[in-house]
Design a protein around this nucleic acid. Structure first.
Lengths: 222, 222
DNA sequence: TAGATTGTTAATCGATTAACAATC
DNA sequence: TAGATTGTTAATCGATTAACAATC
């Protein structure tokens, strides 16, 4: 009897590719607005600051979008990216932290346009509760479980003060949220089953600052 | 005559290390608050979700902070990180875009605490001009050059609507800004001498969404 | 001393780039 | 047809992990 191996192809996109997906998507969408139909790996590369080789290599992970040897079909490409990112249906998120950043997030129409639907705004500070932010009413963490279960929320966005971040993360995980976007200037840890992504602006500024410093010392970017 | 090579040691930190620097720094600072003196690579690793091997490898890039074989001296480590990131003196930034996100940025005390000093808040939309946001008055882009030169600003943070992003970036570059933090949901390109870092929240959410989707399909994180 | 921990080398793993035949 | 462009393989480059002697 022969051994079947790798039945499920563990279709695991490399992390760098995953990071580039949103960039491909935004670019492809602006092309659509201009009614373009085909796009070459070379032009794609130039627009995103990559090599055409990397683009082609990236896109081989999806075998559904090319009109071979003539470039990539923009419409099919968009569709493929949307599926890979998981945006066919609006992703539900909740925001915890009703400070300036949290407010900015739920007020902006931006998230909706990017297929994320905010199901609720929460704050660990009870005194914030009941306040209105746009169409939202700030809720306590006691309401968390209820909302997460009812709406089947997958993603929690954390925008509380640094000291409160880990506690909020723990609560979110307990409620069954599977992905966390940590926009806090503090480190948050979670069990392996939960995916954390750090997107804090302070950290980004510090990273940028390092990059500039190094560019300095070496006389410009390589 | 012998050839001298590599006089300047091109002290180039690998990009992944640079990305981790802010995490090390925040963790080391919380340790300081608890009056801890030494920390092992193992504990550091656990707190940041790395292997101790990676931590040691990372820290060999700085040969100034270890009390060999007993762990790392927290105080020295903090100092080293601050220098590597370039935070010895407050970094000057300007924010372009006075929408919700821009407002959140300049209102939060957060940036100051992280050694970034906001020199001005601008908006490409003239009708926004003159409005007060906290202690700031929104300025037009015509004032950009003036402020950048007077204050010697290195970093520009872009928080305008997507369609305006590239134009704002171009203006900032023209004014002599060397680093851009693009918080916009659109792709921005720049000449090589300028460093761009993307930190858009929409992109982060999309990345997280992909990660969740893949975790799904493979039955949990690896 | 014994246990913990570093610094460092070598091994592994992974991503990017280069090159080119196939083909629209 | 000639030029452009893909898909793919192999080569290069880079990062992470493993392992262990040195030593506090």
């Amino acid at each position: 009897m022969s051994v079947k191996k790798e039945l499920v192809s563990r279709r695991k996109l490399p992390r760098p590719v995953i990071r580039r997906l949103p960039k491909y998507l935004t670019f492809v969408r602006t092309l659509q607005k201009h009614d373009r139909v085909l796009i070459s790996s070379q032009k794609l590369a130039r627009a995103l600051g990559l090599t055409s080789s990397t683009v082609r290599q990236d896109l081989t992970h999806f075998n559904s979008c090319r009109l071979s040897k003539q470039g990539y079909k923009i419409k099919a490409l968009e569709h493929t990216l949307v599926r890979a990112i998981g945006l066919e249906t609006n992703q539900k998120v909740i925001v915890v932290g009703s400070g300036d950043l949290g407010r900015a997030l739920v007020l902006a129409e931006d998230l909706v346009e990017h297929s994320f639907y905010v199901c609720g705004l929460f704050d660990p500070d009870p005194s914030m509760c009941g306040r209105k932010v746009g169409t939202f009413t700030v809720q306590t963490l006691d309401d968390l479980l209820h909302v997460v279960e009812r709406e089947r929320v997958d993603i929690g966005v954390i925008t509380v003060p640094p000291a409160a971040a880990q506690g909020v993360a723990d609560k979110l995980i307990l409620c069954g949220v599977r992905g966390l976007l940590n926009l806090t200037a503090s480190n948050v840890v979670a069990p392996r089953k939960v995916t954390i992504l750090d997107g804090g602006i302070e950290a980004s500024l510090q990273e940028l600052s390092s990059l500039l410093k190094i560019a300095d010392e070496n006389g410009g970017n390589p």
